[in-house]
Design a binder for these strands. Structure first.
Lengths: 193, 193
DNA sequence: TACAATCGTTAACTTAAGTTAAGAATTGAG
DNA sequence: CTCAATTCTTAACTTAAGTTAACGATTGTA
């Protein structure tokens, strides 16, 4: 399982055997059951997550309703806002499936930067990449209808539609579960003709 | 006008007189007329912008229609996607008002990093800040209705509503201009009661 | 100043999302 | 295996956004 992490890292920087051992000895790998809550609203935590296998989701509870705003699957990283600003979290993070991930305290990350300076390079590349992706996602979301968003998701992350409960997917698309059902039926009608 | 830039920088790092002179001598300040187009779809450019006074907007043309996805006002920076990936731009950038900004080639930015290493620190702080803001904005957008988005904007960026054409504001809120007019009338009705 | 273009609003009508409720299918726990 | 909870879909109705068109106000330009 750790190999998944090292394969990922190797795309950005080359680690020595010693450095890999340093990382392994940190004991940051966790396997969690579906439904496990990693972070709750109001909670302070400095943990960052990197998904190796499985899927986690970020959601708000607004007026008693869950609003899912993001999913993170294999090789995706999530640094909760509260880990940066040290304020109580405004959202929840939980496992959509049984999930294996790394849980790294953000301060421990800083230690690593000292021990393995090339990690800084990787992180600055990664954060640029994530920001760019984020901006494109936001633009696409703003400029398209729920139906277009669904079709777009079908192209870009077809796996998500299969592995995620539909009511979570609906709020991820900015609509209600009932609307998603109708929307899918509508699309299916069009294809049939 | 340059003082605005140095005031901004001073929040992150302290520059010496020499360093300030280095920056001034780069001749990166531009004042542009309302309506000036900084970047067109399909164009390749390595320029990054930092608004000192005025307002610029980023928009797509989709099926012949302008879709505005972002505004940048005083002390906000915009690095177009094409400046990073060196692909033709997918969107336009133009001046909403007469605008003074810095235009810096991204390669020139790299030179600066070598000449003034502390700029790297500032940039990594800035990119973390921007990513965090971006994520919160996206979450707010996803979890709220057009009406809530408008009310939210009224709280957070009341100036935008005044200085920006309503049809541009509408697409920024993810709706059509006519819907924005109705939405405002609706809100006004509620307040009147 | 005069004329054209752009802009903002209103109205009537269409389409799709929100709401409420119900029921079938699936999942999970005991 | 069984029962309860969760999930997904469908339906009927409401609300709001999209569409098309018109019109007055504002802006920019010749």
């Amino acid at each position: 399982m750790q190999d998944l992490l090292f394969d990922f890292i190797s795309k950005y920087v080359t680690l020595t055997k010693d450095e890999m051992n340093d990382i392994t000895s940190l004991d940051i790998f966790r396997t969690l059951k579906k439904g496990t809550i990693l972070l709750k609203e109001g909670q302070k935590s400095k943990d960052e997550y990197f998904v190796l296998k499985g899927c986690i989701r970020k959601y708000y509870i607004i007026d008693g309703e869950e609003k899912t705003t993001a999913f993170f699957t294999e090789m995706e990283a999530l640094t909760p806002h509260c880990a940066i600003n040290n304020e109580p979290s405004e959202y929840f993070i939980s496992c959509v499936e049984d999930t294996t991930l790394t849980v790294a305290n953000i301060d421990l990350g800083v230690d690593l930067f000292i021990k393995i300076p090339k990690f800084q390079i990787m992180c600055s590349i990664l954060s640029t990449e994530i920001l760019a992706k984020q901006q494109i996602n936001f633009d696409e979301f703003k400029t398209s209808s729920p139906e277009q968003r669904y079709l777009n998701l079908l192209q870009k992350r077809p796996d998500l539609i299969q592995r995620v409960p539909q009511h979570q997917l609906a709020s991820y698309l900015g609509i209600k579960a009932e609307s998603l059902s109708r929307l899918k039926a509508r699309i299916f009608e069009k294809i049939k003709k």
